[in-house]
Nucleic acid binder design. Structure first.
Ligand SMILES: [Mn+2]
Ligand SMILES: [Mn+2]
Ligand SMILES: [Zn+2]
Ligand SMILES: [Zn+2]
Lengths: 152, 152
DNA sequence: CCACCAATTGCAAATCGTTTGCAACTAAAC
DNA sequence: GTTTAGTTGCAAACGATTTGCAATTGGTGG
């Protein structure tokens, strides 16, 4: 058995890992759900429900089923929702154990997306929470700009 | 003439300042528009179109007119759009000359809003832009948590 | 004061993403 | 197998936002 890649950690989760998570929560592993998970597994960028639908072999399942499946996966913490401000929610698989905390840099011209691992110092958020006496403070942060390809 | 307040800088813009901006762009100063500007002027928090509509004396104007007015004001840079992720856009008057760059801390229970002047070091954004060769990079950042009142 | 015209408005209808109701169906457990 | 809670498809409902269009009006120039 050869190890496929020594340079990068392949964090793509096994489909079985994902489905067993469903069973553990007494949710059924169905055709549509497996298909959706497969698509998410193979996509490095957050997808809209409609995009997932488009990736699915025609007639595999209804758009509504995707909405419901994604809703469930989000509730179970298996996917994370992102909002790029264009009216459609996007979803991405959360790596096991990972907190799913990262951001994106979105091209305002072509909608291309780059994952951003950096975040500002947690100290800032802590100060904001303390100063305003808020608890359980989190944030939503996305960057926008023009990607290299779209710079003429 | 007495100066009303020495402690805070009242940055509330005069209505005439706002309307003249409209005339300068050959846009008409109408009843609905003045009313909308008045409401925005007196509200420290971003409002949804429907909220503006609710503030208006009954029958003052149609909801659609508010959508169109806000659209215009946004295009002229007189209001800034915020997205708290609940499906409805919110708008706030931008102080003259000000860049309108600030964020919010939103209570996830009661939807109360606090304006946040702090922002993370610009250096971080510059690095992200450079590393990914993006240009004109900006960001959208909002904080969420539980306000003092909602902590039971 | 009046005429004129581009800008504006109200109202109805259309869009779009997302949710819901319900009856038919099925994965998983016994 | 039988049983049943969990799922699905399809039609319809929803809420925010946009659009078409005919009627109205603010601002300008005379
Ligand atoms: Mn962050
Ligand atoms: Mn900022
Ligand atoms: Zn691009
Ligand atoms: Zn609260």
């Amino acid at each position: 058995m050869k190890k496929p890649c020594q340079h990068h950690t392949h964090k793509k989760q096994e489909l079985s890992t994902l489905t067993s998570r469903l069973r553990r929560e007494s949710r059924k592993v169905t055709g549509p759900r497996s298909a959706i998970l497969e698509i998410l597994r193979h996509h490095p960028h957050p997808l809209t429900n409609k995009e997932i639908f488009a990736e699915l072999p025609a007639g595999e399942c209804d758009l509504v089923t995707i909405y419901r499946a994604i809703q469930l996966l989000e509730k179970l913490g298996m996917v994370k929702r992102f909002d790029f401000g264009d009216g459609a929610a996007r979803f991405e698989l959360v790596a096991e154990g990972a907190d799913g905390h990262y951001h994106h840099l979105v091209c305002t011209q072509c909608a291309g997306v780059v994952k951003i691992e950096e975040c500002f110092p947690a100290e800032i958020e802590r100060q904001i929470a303390t100063k305003n006496r808020f608890q359980a403070v989190t944030h939503r942060l996305e960057f926008f700009g023009v990607c290299p390809d779209c710079q003429k």
